[in-house]
Amino acid sequence: MFDIENKLLKILSENARYSCEDLSDMLNISSVEVAELIEKLEKEHVICGYPAIIDWDKVSHDRVTALIELKVTPQKSAGFEEIAESITNCREVETVYLMSGGYDLCAIVKGHTFKEVAMFVAKRLAPMDGVISTATHFVLRKYKEVGTVLENKRADDRGMFQL
């Protein structure tokens, strides 16, 4: 079952839109078993969500993404957890990671304009207790996101028939 579970997770990580019936055919287990397995993985918070990968640049021009590096002072009892939680709770923040290397926390922040994101960092993140410094890097163009290349795919240039 571990093998099936891993297969299922890998398939869903690449495309979460398969029906239970399709997954049943791909994994050689019944649709009911697929549904139960997915439910279990959702309950255990192994599967945490199913967002689509969207190239927003194709549909709107007022979306800005920035990667914020934060250096913070860990707290005696809670380490990085409390400040990470405070940052996680901000609606503007899409992703938060604890990092090794030159800085401590990485936050990916979304906004409508460069100014809006910059002001969010200046007014909300930088003044937080424990934050020593921030560095804001704006994303200029996305080439690949969550394993998916964001360009129009080249047509299949193989022949129709080959023996």
Binding site: R158, G159, M160, F161, Q162, L163
Partner: peptide, 16 residues
Amino acid sequence: AATMDHVITLGVGEPD
């Protein structure tokens, strides 16, 4: 096949 558009081919012996 040459006269058709949008053929789905399961006819190729070549990785995609």
